[in-house]
Structures are given as structure tokens and as C-alpha cells.
Design a protein around this nucleic acid. Structure first.
Lengths: 146, 146
DNA sequence: TCCACTACTTATCATTTGATAACAAAACGA
DNA sequence: TCGTTTTGTTATCAAATGATAAGTAGTGGA
């Protein structure tokens, strides 16, 4: 196995994962939340407190478009912005209680689909999958920066 | 590690992989090919010969929209449709020589980015990554159907 | 033969997303 | 202090995507 073969395998894997992800999430009816808004909410949830610039950089959305989507999410009371004390240009963005509730519900729905996907997995399989995910996180995504 | 924890890990992993994928592919300038068209071309390439319905099902694009994108790709001479001898309703879709060339170039570009991502990986790491991908393919995507 | 069904197309419309220009406010460095 | 950079906003336009209705042609079963 050389790096070229690994690349081929990685591409195929990625394509499959994208399809699976879409299958898992397609039944989640999130009351007028678009795919992009969902991605933003998901990012905020895992990162806890972020700025608009961080969202823009990490999700590869231009800052004006990020700002627009954040405004919509704020109007829907799913996120809230608070001023950064140290740098008053910045805004710290967090999920509101409503936002967290919505994401929790969405995750519950996705988790149900997910558990069907791995229903055949034994305890040993679960450990193996977890270990595999950890390996990829560590060895591939380690320096994912910029 | 129970299945709920595994789900959490899986979600975080998926989000990260989406970001990494976008980073890898964002410099690929494919001469007026959209993201959706790229996905379709990628799917055709790995599957070799497919029908419109298969693309529609696997990529979760409605058949009318699939048909529209395929027409555009055909106009650009990137794919070709041939009639199925056994069932004349069906059309077998393949990449043209031009289409294959374009995908090969795109992959070369992405592979360059990818190799930067794993530049620090030793031979042993490469084997470990490959093994991890195989585990996930086998234990998670195994029955990804419908 | 007739009817229901599948595979695909065309057309149309609304919505989402991307891209860009222009702006304001704060920070930062010389 | 003054010019530059960073952070974010609003506005506007074009393009991509999603959704749906309606239609054609072929298949296959009763």
C-alpha cells in the first residue's frame, strides 16, 4: 500500500460517507432549516463558542454569507450573539436553549438511523469502529489547518 | 464505548471529514463544473456504467434534476448515453474520453493536496489508515442500502 | 389488447447559495 | 494621531439547486 493507493481508497470512502450521511439526515425535518444553516448550527454546537470569522473560515463560507445566515438563525432565536469584552469588534456566538433543543432533537433522529446502520455490530465491532475513527482523526485530520 | 458514544464520535468525524474534503477540493478549478455535476461525474467514474435512476437514487437527486444535469454534462461532451439493448427505456451512462481526462486531472490536483495532508505519515501509518478505512467500509457502510 | 408501472424528459418556479461592492466600527502599529 | 488591518454588516445580483407538474416511450402482467 503506497500513498497513491491510499488516496484512491480515501476518495471512494469519502464519496460513500457523503452518501451515507445524506441518507442518515434526509428524514430529519428541521422546520425550515436549510442544509447550510444546519451545518452552521452543528459547528457551533461542537465548538461551543465561536465567532463569525471562525465559522466563515472553517466551513468555507464567505463572511457576508455567514453573516446573513447567522442573522436568520438569530431571528429564529436559535443562536445568540454576545459582545466580546476584550475585542469589541468580535461577537461570541452560542446556541440558545431553543437552538440546543432543536439540535438535540435532530441528533436523536439521526442517531436512530445510525443505530440501524450498525445494528449488526457486536461490542467488539463497536470498539473496532471507534478505534478506526480515532486513527483517522489522529493521522489524517491532525493538521487539517487552513 | 457504547453505541451512543460511538454515534457522537461518528458525527464529529463526519463534520471534520466534510471540512477536510472541502479544503482538498476547493482549489480544483474545473472549468464551469458545479459541485453537483462533479459529484455525478465522480459517481459515474467509480461505478463505470450507470443509469439515470441509479444516480438519482444513490446521490439523492430527483430524477428530473438528474436528467437536467446529465443533459448539461452531455452537451459538454463529458458523458455519453447509450441505449440499453435489453430495456430500451434505460440509458447506460459512461464518461467520454474527455470526461475521463477531466476527472483524472481533477484527481491529480486533489491528490496533491491529500499528500500534503498525510506528508508526515510513515509507511506504518499508511497501513494503519488504510486498515481503518477498510474497517469502516466493512462494518458501517456494509449495508448502506436505501 | 389493455392497463399499470418504470425510465426518462421537458418545462417552470421558488429557494438557496455564492460572489462582490460598499460600508462602519474597533483594534493595532508606527 | 493617522493610516492600515481586522471584524462584521447590508445590499444586490447571478447561479445552482430543489420541487413539482405534465408528458413520452417502453415494459410487463392480466
Amino acid at each position: 500500500m503506497n500513498k497513491h493507493d491510499l488516496f484512491q481508497q480515501f476518495v471512494a470512502f469519502t464519496a460513500t460517507l457523503h452518501q451515507v450521511t445524506q441518507t442518515l439526515t434526509q428524514n430529519v425535518k428541521l422546520d425550515h432549516i436549510t442544509a447550510l444553516q444546519y451545518k452552521i448550527l452543528e459547528y457551533i454546537q461542537v465548538s461551543q463558542a465561536v465567532t463569525a470569522t471562525e465559522i466563515s473560515d472553517c466551513l468555507h463560507i464567505s463572511l457576508p454569507n455567514t453573516s446573513r445566515e447567522l442573522r436568520k438563525l438569530q431571528e429564529r432565536k436559535l443562536i445568540e450573539k454576545t459582545n466580546d469584552k476584550l475585542d469589541r469588534r468580535k461577537q461570541v456566538i452560542r446556541l440558545t436553549i431553543d437552538g440546543e433543543k432543536m439540535m438535540t432533537e435532530a441528533f436523536a433522529c439521526i442517531e436512530e438511523q445510525f443505530s440501524q446502520l450498525i445494528q449488526g455490530a457486536s461490542q467488539k465491532d463497536v470498539e473496532a469502529i471507534s478505534e478506526a475513527l480515532a486513527v483517522l482523526e489522529q493521522k489524517v485530520f491532525q493538521n487539517k489547518g487552513q
